[in-house]
């Protein structure tokens, strides 16, 4: 009994540690005081304010745009790369396999600086486009690693079986491979989307004038003080993320149940 109580206490502490900051943020988004220190009384003013703050809304739409476009493109490129790496043998394949991990382990700041210098060299004007390019660059390896883990020896036998039954390479990929790697693609894409959504460092180096993203906007507010409408916006984002996560979970458990029955 005592052990059990200790057990619960531990779980409680872990979850408080993880979620307390978020909960406080949500609470303060309803705070009438503009200082994030004292709670005065309940208000929805910041939410109203939010929709009048042009800069903030722009930054938010920029972030969503960058994250969606970079996720879609990096998922496509990453999936094709993973399939190519699995299917074909070429000289230095092992080196390539190893190089994939570089963008994952390299410090973000180094990647940011190097991307900036490439852009300058290529005389690319910094804009939303350059941010998207940078995000695609660091997202691809995550997709590759995720998808590659599902491509095993057994899949090559399935490919042979399909070939034996007269399927061409396009159909083999579309009908046999894709349904198998699809979940890994989704998890790779989710990872890419989240990484892009909250990236500060790389965006900082590759953003041009007028191409502010939300993390950059919030970061720049540190100098002037963070206003509670940011709290309101982040609360809305948390709501969004939770909805997505819950629907994915429900969808998957539904699928698993279907598979068992």
């Amino acid at each position: 009994m005592k052990k059990r109580r200790l057990h619960n206490l531990f779980i409680f502490l872990v979850f408080s540690f993880l979620f307390l900051p978020i909960i406080i943020l949500v609470i303060y988004s309803f705070n009438s005081s503009s200082m994030n220190t004292l709670f005065e009384h309940f208000t929805l003013d910041w939410y109203k304010n939010l929709f009048n703050n042009r800069d903030l809304i722009d930054a938010f739409t920029n972030t969503l745009l960058v994250a969606s476009v970079s996720t879609i493109i990096s998922t496509i490129i990453g999936t094709i790369s993973a399939y190519g790496l699995y299917k074909y043998n070429f000289p230095l394949k092992n080196l390539v396999n190893w190089l994939i991990y570089i963008p994952i382990v390299i410090p973000e700041i180094v990647l940011g600086i190097s991307l900036l210098s490439i852009y300058t060299l290529m005389k690319l004007e910094l804009s939303l486009f350059t941010i998207i390019l940078a995000h695609i660059c660091f997202s691809i390896p995550f997709v590759i690693v995720s998808v590659r883990s599902t491509l095993s020896k057994e899949i090559s036998v399935l490919e042979e079986a399909a070939k034996d039954l007269g399927a061409n390479n396009y159909i083999i990929f579309r009908k046999i491979i894709l349904p198998i790697i699809y979940p890994a693609m989704i998890s790779g894409a989710t990872l890419a989307f989240t990484l892009s959504l909250d990236d500060v460092v790389i965006s900082y180096f590759t953003a041009g004038p007028g191409s502010n993203t939300l993390p950059l906007y919030i970061y720049s507010m540190i100098k002037t003080g963070i206003t509670p409408d940011v709290n309101a916006l982040t609360t809305l984002m948390i709501l969004l993320v939770f909805t997505i996560l819950i629907s994915i979970t429900i969808y998957q458990s539904h699928k698993i149940r279907k598979a068992i029955i």
């Binding site: 036998v157 042979e160 009908k175 046999i176």
Partner: peptide
């Protein structure tokens, strides 16, 4: 192989799992 009029039953059967 796609055009030969022979078919194979593989050692581990190789049934398509998502079909």
């Amino acid at each position: 192989a796609t055009k030969r009029e022979v078919n194979t039953i593989f050692q581990n059967l190789a049934l398509f799992p998502k079909m």
